[in-house]
Design a protein around this nucleic acid. Structure first.
Lengths: 109, 109
DNA sequence: TCCCTTGTTCAACGATTATTGAACTATTGA
DNA sequence: TCAATAGTTCAATAATCGTTGAACAAGGGA
């Protein structure tokens, strides 16, 4: 289920980053998450996130761009995604993973 | 974390029942959940739910009454609980556990 | 006091699940 | 064509988690 998918810290961090990215562009490249885990581990988590309908992947040459299935999620689980994201933002302090990630990939706001 | 706690179907069913109960009285007895799992298994899930701050227990004689920590949860994770509950209500059809439970414990609406 | 009920704790088992490295596919560019 | 890059898939390991039964503690009622 979706909750089970979101209960993993790495997947939550991925979803959180994708949600942050929604303000700017809609997509991120798979390689932008290498700060969170190894390549194959990331592919594993991406597969999980795809399976439960949280995100989808667009193939573009040798890159793959991922983004949240925002509309489907809001339709099926109203308010859930926003609640999870805002809650995750609150204790983002505890997720040093995110801190490291933002330094390397987002370059600060 | 709270999401990890809610990702288990039995714990979700417990939380769902507690949320339903909020309209009537605020509490339920531990023994009211025996339709969901065995005694020791329930105690295990209750402990998990207590650990992550989802519910609390009041001892009354030989019984123990449990209820949601609604205020604390709404303060710390705004909208999360309601989103989870309403989503759980949507596909309550798939949770036959709930169906069985309502028959034996709630006796219909 | 004795027994029964209620619920927790403990130890053990089984089953998922996350993580890792290596092999593989596909695309780009020289 | 050859090498390099981006991701996925596979197999194996490690770790976590859920489930079960038995033993235990605490109250209530006869």
């Amino acid at each position: 289920m979706v909750l089970d998918c979101l209960s993993d810290p790495i997947r939550l961090a991925i979803v959180y980053q994708l949600a942050q990215q929604e303000r700017v562009s809609s997509e991120l490249c798979c390689g932008d998450f290498t700060g969170l885990a190894g390549k194959s581990n990331l592919a594993y988590h991406f597969a999980k996130l795809r399976e439960c309908g949280l995100m989808l992947t667009r193939v573009a040459g040798t890159n793959r761009f991922v983004r949240l299935r925002r509309e489907d999620l809001d339709a099926r689980f109203p308010g859930l995604l926003d609640a999870v994201i805002s809650s995750a933002a609150k204790d983002a302090d505890r997720l040093q993973l995110l801190g490291e990630f933002e330094e390397t990939a987002a370059g600060g706001s």
